[in-house]
Design a protein around this nucleic acid. Structure first.
Lengths: 191, 191
DNA sequence: TCGATCGGCTAACGACTGCTAGCCATCGGA
DNA sequence: TCCGATGGCTAGCAGTCGTTAGCCGATCGA
């Protein structure tokens, strides 16, 4: 059944190229060259260029949602719930910066119906964060002018990592995660 | 000398299309259609498609830097300085969401040497924000684990507007600006 | 009135794109 | 040993793109 390793290598190369040059700016020949084969040979492993993007974006959103689900399971305290959700959010963006960057900037290149699906997952993710803030406000633990704006701010905090975070940077993943979580809690007035 | 209005209309149409479909995903025919002419006719008004992007991105960064300069002029108090810088930052992103979005996501489509120029301006803008945080820390008015991370967080807060802010939204520009400024001050522990 | 300029247009070039067709070497299992 | 599957390859199709060339009607100052 072959090694199957090439399929993974192709997806990894596509991710890196989509992040660096954009979906439209990346050719199948580019992706092929990155794994040592010609463009047309790619079609022995993947159905189409669009398929590469679809799979990349849906698995990214699924991973993010799953991580959040796990982080929130079995915890009732609003402050602790937000802390865990932000931890998962930031950690995911640190570990998958390229996926996050492509996910945010290439939504337009995603064809229907997948575009709608991914947008739906993203809306669900955001709604979940807003609810976390509202829970904290209702419990008298947070103090914010607008739960919507606060949740957007927290989401943006983590998504920003996609731009500036580097694994080789001077700050470790844990340090960044801790500080961003601290920022998020200060932001909602739970410091 | 003609009206000159067409040149402006072309730039406005290009901005909207670049934001919606991306630079590579936008054709000269698209831009022409948006202003009621054919693709090739555009060359009576602009030098090239790349020129459209170059001008868009440099004027955006210049506007952002100039606004920051004005905001900081003649104020010494670190808290007030950060407050004004964040106000300008957020207000700019609210008023020029499309420019900000294109500026952030189409850097890759910008050819050298303009890419280097714009990146330099952006680095200067970021450095200025970091210095503001460091000033506040040095004066004992802010309390942050890392000035670098705090300044990134503040920058991301405003840049996020590019994604979710809408003029027709329920929150007015002033409300959003005020709340984001509040968030930024909480974030650096100056609440 | 006349001639230049302005700003549209179509035709077309040359390069490039995603993808298909079809060929062939390699190699593991029967 | 041989046969089929695997996974490379080149050639090429059918389009699209940015851009140039060259044409022509309208407008306007002299």
């Amino acid at each position: 059944m072959g090694t199957g390793a090439t399929g993974t290598a192709i997806r990894a190369a596509a991710l890196e190229l989509f992040a660096a040059r954009g979906y439209e700016g990346t050719t199948m020949a580019d992706i092929g060259a990155a794994v040592g084969i010609r463009g047309p040979s790619l079609y022995k492993h993947v159905a189409s260029k669009q398929d590469l993007l679809v799979e990349l974006m849906t698995t990214t959103m699924d991973g993010l949602l799953e991580l959040q689900r796990v982080a929130l399971a079995g915890t009732a305290d609003p402050v602790e719930r937000l802390r865990r959700a932000v931890d998962a959010h930031v950690r995911f963006h640190a570990r998958h910066r390229l996926e996050a960057f492509v996910g945010a900037s290439e939504m337009r290149s995603l064809a229907e119906p997948h575009r709608g699906t991914v947008l739906g997952k993203r809306a669900e993710y955001e709604r979940s964060f807003r609810r976390l803030v509202e829970e904290g406000v209702a419990a008298g633990r947070f103090r914010v002018p607008s739960a919507r704006l606060a949740s957007y701010a927290i989401l943006d905090l983590g998504m920003g990592l996609a731009t500036w975070y580097r694994e080789e940077g001077e700050l470790s993943e844990n340090e960044v995660v801790w500080q961003q979580t601290e920022f998020a809690l200060r932001l909602v007035g739970a410091g």
